[in-house]
């Protein structure tokens, strides 16, 4: 395949809109067969980065190479090898599910006969075969997203770009999408996705960057990031409303670190149960206690002082 050359290579990549800097000098390398994630809250610059990688938005500054090519000069040639699942779908609600795929395949110069055959295979893959001849309009959000994913695969792309693939879906629909994406990943398709869901990032990504305010604040495998930036366990203590600050002071020193959220206090510790015993030992009686393993959400909180989903 490609050897050491990354499919996506960015150095000092910047995107400005007037005075606003959406992406503020990021370095990224994505290798073939990898599932790579951009994790961050809304407004972190993820979508702007995706649009630059998708060759529809020229970088303001910095170096960007996709499949070894320059997106500004060879945009159309690169896009011929990309599959894009945008955040807001651009399906035609008046056309049938199948027509949407065939029409889109034609944009890639795929002959009609091949397009029909591929549409049938992809509908099978995203479990929409029964809806093939139904219009898109009455489809649920999850079905539309799966159709958009199928559409992104119609040219057998080298890289699939997924911008917030499960945002706005109910839990069951999300799991269906994850399961399909996981299958793609197993087939060796290079996936690049943005998300503000830490569970999505943990489940799907081999490697990710945490973005905040247009910059990359951390990079690595999900597990490695958690180990590096957080403790093994977290104790969540819920005290009476408006009193989290007061109690935070009283549990200080129990863990490596204490974070105060509007509705709870987080205690970062190696041993959760021991810490809970200690809390009770100090005569404190929080309304609710939860011991859990550290997640990417904690990594983000520790790095930026803010939560991912507000």
């Amino acid at each position: 395949m490609t050897g050491a050359r990354p499919l996506i290579h960015a150095r000092g990549l910047v995107k400005r809109f007037g005075d606003f800097t959406a992406v503020d000098g990021i370095d990224v390398d994505v290798r073939a067969g990898e599932a790579f994630g951009f994790l961050g809250p809304n407004g972190a610059g993820k979508s702007s980065t995706m649009r630059m990688v998708g060759c529809v938005s020229p970088p303001s500054e910095g170096e960007l190479r996709i499949l070894g090519l320059d997106p500004v000069r060879d945009g159309a040639a690169i896009r011929a090898r990309l599959g894009v699942c945008p955040q807001v779908d651009s399906l035609d609600p008046e056309l049938t599910v199948r027509e949407n795929l065939v029409v889109y395949a034609r944009y890639f110069g795929i002959p009609r006969r091949v397009a029909r055959q591929r549409a049938a295979e992809l509908l099978d893959f995203v479990q929409l075969t029964e809806r093939a001849d139904s219009k898109v309009e009455p489809l649920s959000g999850g079905m539309r997203r799966r159709l958009t994913i199928a559409r992104a695969l119609v040219n057998e792309p080298d890289i699939v770009l997924l911008d917030e693939p499960t945002t706005g879906l109910d839990p069951q629909a999300r799991h269906l999408v994850w399961e399909r994406l996981f299958r793609l990943k197993q087939q060796g398709v290079t996936l690049v996705l943005t998300t503000h869901y830490m569970d999505e990032a943990e489940q799907l990504c081999d490697r990710l960057v945490v973005m905040d305010g247009g910059r990359i604040v951390a990079e690595g495998a999900p597990r490695a990031l958690i180990e590096r930036y957080s403790t093994r366990e977290v104790v969540e203590l819920r005290f009476a409303a408006e009193s989290q600050e007061k109690y935070a002071g009283m549990v200080a020193g129990l863990g490596e670190r204490v974070e105060v959220l509007p509705d709870r206090v987080l205690l970062y510790v190696a041993d959760g149960d021991a810490a809970v015993a200690e809390v009770h030992g100090r005569g404190l009686a929080p309304a609710n206690v939860l011991v859990r393993r550290s997640s990417l959400e904690d990594v983000f909180l520790l790095l930026t002082g803010r939560t991912l989903v507000e």
Partner: peptide
């Protein structure tokens, strides 16, 4: 492309539009 697969593009791109 990099993987050695043929890159297909429509001959007259406005046509499929």
């Amino acid at each position: 492309d990099l993987a050695g697969r043929p890159v297909t593009r429509p001959r007259v791109p406005a046509w499929p539009v």
